[in-house]
């Protein structure tokens, strides 16, 4: 017998209730030791006071938004984003490159969920890893929308520019739709370039099926072939690819690269078109690394390297005046 035993029984009576034997034991203790009544009163008071839950209630709506933000990527979408500076080398066997100022892509990965939209607000391209193993290199300002699965397909819509590395999966084809074209990946590596209401698809590896949304015409492209899709245009195969896959491995780092190609890569990465008025620049080559640089830094480097007199940014154009190279 002890105070502890009495406290134990009182606590149990408060929290859970006592069985008959325990009740009798407590009664005997209380009768035998009147001082315990004070203890009982204390315990009851404490018990009563602990009932106070406090007025705090979490904001479930806001919390749910946070949780939703965390779970959505892990199911269907990019699980992480990285800067371009890292390793494009990882971009493996199957790659699609989509380039354009205003074009639309669609792919389907999600089930039972509303479309989710991601916009690259950074000033440099971002790599997004997707759970199916595919990767998207999303250029600055580009927006990608992932749609709920309709069939067993992976499908996205994209506005702006992007580079896709598609993991081969025969059971779940990767579908890309632009405003002009629908592109079906059959396990491959290729570029899609869409701008000014045209989509250019250039295949560097494997097989790609391209259909025109306008004419419903369909064409198959293999490595080394490209085609242009647009309203009122016939689909024609051409033998030229704009970029090789290897060039994308090191997109913004180059050595003695003709300036026109440098501009092409910068346009791709920054979503700005470069325009210049000096013919002297046409024969120039550049060595440099623009990875992780913002557009203004890029312009400053170009200005000093090429002795450019002035520049102007007009909408999506960077206009360079003057300039030459030694």
């Amino acid at each position: 017998m002890s105070v502890e035993r009495a406290q134990h029984l009182i606590a149990k009576r408060l929290a859970e209730g006592l069985n008959e034997l325990e009740g009798q034991e407590l009664e005997r203790l209380l009768e035998a030791h009147p001082m315990l009544e004070k203890e009982e009163e204390w315990m009851a008071k404490v018990w009563e006071k602990t009932d106070h839950q406090g007025s705090w209630t979490p904001d479930s709506e806001m919390a749910w938004t946070k949780v939703k933000g965390k779970i959505t990527p892990s199911i269907e979408l990019p699980s992480k984003k990285r800067g371009l500076g890292m390793n494009l080398i990882k971009i493996a066997a199957a790659a699609i490159i989509l380039v354009g100022l205003a074009f639309v892509l669609r792919t389907t990965f999600q089930k039972n969920s509303t479309p989710s939209v991601y916009t690259n607000l950074e000033k440099a391209p971002e790599i997004m890893d997707m759970t199916d193993g595919s990767q998207i290199l999303l250029s600055s300002k580009a927006q990608i929308t992932f749609f709920p699965a309709v069939k067993e397909e992976r499908k996205v819509r994209l506005e702006g520019q992007a580079f896709f590395d598609v993991e081969k999966n025969a059971e779940k084809p990767f579908i890309i739709e632009t405003a002009e074209a629908r592109i079906r990946v059959l396990g491959t590596s290729f570029d899609v370039h869409s701008e000014n209401q045209q989509t250019v698809v250039s295949v560097t590896e494997g097989v790609v099926e391209v259909s025109s949304l306008d004419s419903r015409e369909k064409i198959r492209l293999v490595a080394g072939e490209n085609t242009i899709v647009g309203v009122g245009m016939e689909l024609v195969k051409e033998n030229e690819t704009k970029f090789s896959f290897e060039e994308y491995n090191d997109l913004l780092s180059f050595s003695d690269l003709p300036l026109t190609e440098v501009f092409e890569r910068l346009e791709w990465a920054y979503a700005y078109e470069f325009v210049w008025d000096s013919d002297k620049l046409n024969s120039c080559s550049l060595t440099g690394n623009f990875a992780d640089k913002e557009i203004n830094e890029v312009i400053n480097i170009l200005r000093s390297a090429l002795s450019i007199e002035s520049h102007q940014i007009a909408g999506k154009q960077v206009i360079l005046s003057g300039g030459f190279c030694q």
Partner: peptide, 11 residues
């Protein structure tokens, strides 16, 4: 035991 201990410690 733990509930009783808690209440005893509180008290």
């Amino acid at each position: 035991n733990q509930v009783a201990k808690a209440l005893r410690l509180l008290r």
